[in-house]
Design a protein around this nucleic acid. Structure first.
Length: 876
DNA sequence: GCAAGGTC
């Protein structure tokens, strides 16, 4: 975009690419037009075509435009000089009329200000507004709309998230708009300090352990750095994330990062339903406040997912690895609020099949043999489970076997072409028709996307946007020698896409963007599926003619139908749908004939095992996961060996089956979808202001903590269920060990983390150490004569922080007569008799009154704890 | 070594 600004009668200033353009002399009346052309056409010369320009009326229109706005004239030769390549005249016209205009925001006064600063022609002193979208594509498209195609792009720290800039008039003020983006969530909840380590705390503690939000990936950190840099010069922050719950939460992550740099920055939220000119314009003119409620709802969701997932995963894994060392010694046994219900669907169907009771049934079949072939009429009673009943009815018919045609119904019938392809349908289709798993199909589609062959494959949209011109996309496919002819046919009638009902406001339905003749294997099959789906959805429904004939024999009704396909249309390019002719002779109303009548028997059959497409459909129906995550959850339960595939259908594995049975035996429907659905309802209540986020979080944590505690109490039921499915006898292991119970004694006076009793791996050596290890090395090694150390519920009333008392048990008469074989003591220094006798220095005391440093300071724990007390108080 | 969510 180039702007020019009149300084005085003869002098102008050019503003291009967000800078005032320095020039050796001031732009004058006579050289302004040349300068504009230099910039406009140099920048765009690849798109300009001399002959198009010269032969069209563009030249004169441009001339008129300039004369009108600035009273300028320009020479035709500047145009021809810079125009080398081809573009349609329509586009050139748009380019010219859009790209060159008087600066909408600059008054003569401010332009003069710039003019005076000879060497500093920049937009630096314009008010800067930082705009952040959820993904680069959205940022680019919104910037493009608001700048009328005139934004300039530069790089940020992240390779994927560019920065787009342009001048704009916002709420009557001249501003510099800076657009950038994140890539979904920027921050992630994680446990703090020692709670990250599996053996440093009991899984139960994860329900209350501190969590923080942090940046996980390298690219996220780059995005964060870009935000931190760009917000410095900005006076306002506008959030353009997707307008859903997760989007709102992502918005607050952006706000947190920016506020850390600039605490007082004004923050506004743009609400848009789609990225189109009207919607985006409406959004920028009606900025609102970010929605704290939606943000909190997502925080509740993420925190719960982490706490519950981590607690159950550690519990299951640590316990079952020890109980079933033969089968599971190295197996990770994860639990998640989406993966378990997904597993549940598979188990449920498998059980339904196991429990299925076959039943015999009987029916009457009427066959009419004619010269044109035979017609099978099916009984309107379908089938009966009482043979005698069928015998009686058949006898009645055979007594008077003449059939009378009671109705002939002929009507046109169409088979609908597919909807534009969204991610879910794409995954289902790949899985069903190509036998390529959803996860694999997405991986291939992403590769095709990065190769420029198809559009972005992650989309919830099944409506082609109005401004997407389908003609060139179909045109590309006419080059194919496989479906080129079909594509040409589509062009003749004009593309006629079916319209779905879903839109994610960001990406169009999946469609091919280039011809790809050199693909092999699954890439070729996936590409072909996308092209065929695309061509099918923009063509026409298949048309046919259906005839339904009803007859009556001794009061029993039968029906047969025939189909003639008149136009295959989309079916010619779309082999994934089947529709076949079913010839039928002509029947006249009231005509009579004698059919063959016979009794046929059959057995009811169990429902089939679930296919991946069925599973995705079930997840969608019950709200398990999102469009973007269905394939991931399925992949997870496969990789955990909870389920396996048998002829492309899911069967539960021994582990998955045992887990579901185990929790079912405890009375918890951990694998049923309504747990997640209940949370979903609470989240909606938070968003609507009906419930308080903190209360919901507390309630849910409490609920799951109770479930967890009960599960650990009844863990033997899990063992028992798995013993059956794994066919391995459970090993006898002490309850503390299998449940990974960490006996916390008290706080560490050195670093503030917790101090707990432990047993040295592979030996009987007992010790007490700080969970902040290795940063904090506070510890006590007990002599070999100490047989057991038990943390008692009673607290020491003398030592600060009231640590728990310990019960020590010694080898018989080891410290006799000074100490009995069993003593109760405190190890924080109030009871020197025991400690002296064992030659142990006490643990560092907690400073009274001063709140212990938070556990997340564990990392910074002082190293001087080493050597405190006796030599045996340090761990190497 | 844990979850689910977003997205190149």
């Amino acid at each position: 975009m180039i702007y020019f600004q009149k300084i005085n009668v003869s002098k102008y200033l050019l503003y291009c690419n967000y800078k005032w353009i320095p020039h050796s002399s001031n732009y004058t009346y006579s050289n302004l037009s040349r300068s504009i052309f230099n910039y406009v056409f140099k920048e765009n010369r690849n798109y300009m075509n001399h002959s198009t320009l010269a032969s069209s009326s563009i030249l004169s229109k441009y001339s008129q435009l300039l004369s009108k706005v600035a009273n300028l004239r320009f020479s035709r030769r500047y145009v021809s000089h810079y125009c080398t390549d081809s573009r349609t005249s329509k586009e050139v016209k748009e380019l010219v009329t859009v790209d060159v205009c008087a600066h909408p925001n600059k008054s003569d006064e401010s332009a003069r200000g710039h003019f005076k600063q000879k060497d500093k022609f920049s937009a630096d002193n314009m008010v800067k507004i930082l705009n952040v979208a959820e993904k680069n594509d959205a940022s680019k498209n919104i910037a493009n709309i608001l700048s009328r195609g005139g934004s300039a792009r530069r790089d940020g720290y992240s390779q994927w998230n560019k920065i787009y800039e342009f001048p704009y008039q916002l709420q009557g003020q001249d501003v510099q708009m800076v657009f950038t983006s994140v890539s979904g969530h920027l921050l992630n909840y994680e446990f703090v300090g020692s709670y990250k380590r599996w053996h440093a705390c009991a899984p139960l503690e994860l329900f209350s352990a501190p969590v923080v939000k942090g940046v996980k990936e390298e690219n996220m950190n780059n995005i964060k750095r870009t935000l931190e840099r760009e917000v410095r010069g900005a006076s306002k922050l506008i959030i353009w994330t997707d307008c859903d719950r997760e989007g709102e939460n992502i918005g607050f992550e952006i706000i947190d990062v920016c506020r850390a740099v600039k605490p007082n920055i004004t923050v506004l939220r743009a609400r848009f339903s789609e990225i189109t000119q009207p919607s985006v314009t409406r959004a920028i003119n009606n900025l609102v406040q970010p929605d704290e409620l939606q943000n909190k709802a997502v925080d509740v969701r993420s925190e719960l997912d982490l706490r519950i997932g981590a607690a159950f995963t550690r519990f299951q894994t640590l316990r079952l690895q020890k109980v079933f060392p033969g089968s599971l010694s190295d197996t990770l046994i994860s639990y998640g609020s989406c993966q378990f219900p997904t597993l549940g669907f598979v188990v449920q169907r498998y059980k339904a099949i196991q429990e299925f009771q076959q039943e015999q049934f009987w029916k009457i079949k009427a066959t009419h043999r004619t010269d044109e072939g035979s017609v099978d009429f099916s009984w309107l009673r379908v089938r009966l489970f009482d043979e005698t009943c069928v015998d009686v009815l058949l006898d009645t018919c055979l007594d008077d076997p003449t059939a009378t045609v009671t109705s002939v119904n002929a009507r046109p019938k169409s088979k609908w072409r597919p909807l534009p392809l969204d991610t879910i349908e794409f995954e289902k289709l790949s899985s069903r028709k190509l036998k390529i798993s959803a996860k694999e199909a997405m991986k291939i589609a992403e590769k095709l996307y990065t190769s420029g062959l198809i559009s972005y494959p992650r989309t919830e949209t099944n409506i082609f946007p109005k401004d997407l011109d389908l003609v060139p996309l179909v045109e590309i496919q006419t080059q194919s020698n496989v479906w080129g002819g079909f594509a040409a046919g589509v062009l003749e009638r004009g593309p006629n896409p079916r319209r779905g009902k879903k839109t994610d406001e960001a990406h169009p339905p999946i469609h091919p963007t280039k011809l790809a003749p050199n693909l092999d294997g699954n890439e070729k099959r996936i590409y072909e599926l996308i092209v065929r789906s695309f061509l099918a959805c923009v063509s026409d429904d298949a048309r046919g003619y259906e005839t339904v004939v009803e007859i009556q024999v001794a009061g029993e009704k039968f029906r047969a139908s025939g189909l003639i396909i008149l136009e295959k249309n989309y079916l010619e390019v779309y082999p994934y749908d089947k529709w076949t002719d079913k010839p039928m002779p002509h029947y006249e109303m009231n005509a009579q004939f004698t059919p063959e009548l016979e009794k046929v028997d059959g057995m009811t059959t169990a429902p089939p095992l679930l296919t991946e497409a069925d599973l995705i459909a079930l997840m969608e129906k019950h709200g398990i996961g999102t469009d973007a995550t269905h394939a991931d959850h399925i992949e997870t339960i496969k990789s955990r060996l909870y389920v396996g595939l048998l002829d492309s259908r899911f069967v539960p594995g021994t582990l998955g089956m045992g887990l579901v049975n185990g929790y079912d035996a405890m009375g918890f429907q951990m694998s049923e979808p309504h747990l997640r659905a209940g949370l979903e309802k609470d989240l909606k209540d938070i968003c609507a202001g009906r419930k308080d986020a903190a209360v919901v979080l507390q309630e849910q944590v409490q609920k799951y903590r109770e479930v967890f505690e009960e599960a650990t109490r009844q863990a033997d039921k899990l063992d028992a269920a798995l013993a059956i499915t794994l066919e391995e006898a459970p090993a006898v292991v002490a309850n503390e060990a299998v449940n990974n119970i960490v006996q916390t004694v008290g706080k560490c006076g050195s670093c503030g983390d917790r101090v707990a009793v432990k047993q040295k791996k592979n030996s009987t050596g007992l010790y007490i150490s700080c969970q902040g290890f290795p940063d904090c090395r506070v510890c006590i090694w007990f002599p070999a004569d100490v047989m057991s150390v038990t943390v008692l519920p009673e607290k020491c009333q003398q030592c600060a922080g009231n640590p728990n008392l310990l019960e020590l048990e010694f080898r018989a008469r080891s410290y006799s007569p000074i100490l009995a074989d069993r003593v109760t003591t405190c190890v924080y220094g109030c009871d020197n008799t025991v400690l002296d006798c064992l030659e142990i220095r006490p643990l560092p005391r907690v400073t009274p009154g001063q709140p212990p440093p938070a556990a997340n300071n564990a990392r910074g724990g002082p190293a001087n704890a080493r050597g405190r007390g006796a030599g045996n108080n340090a761990r190497g």
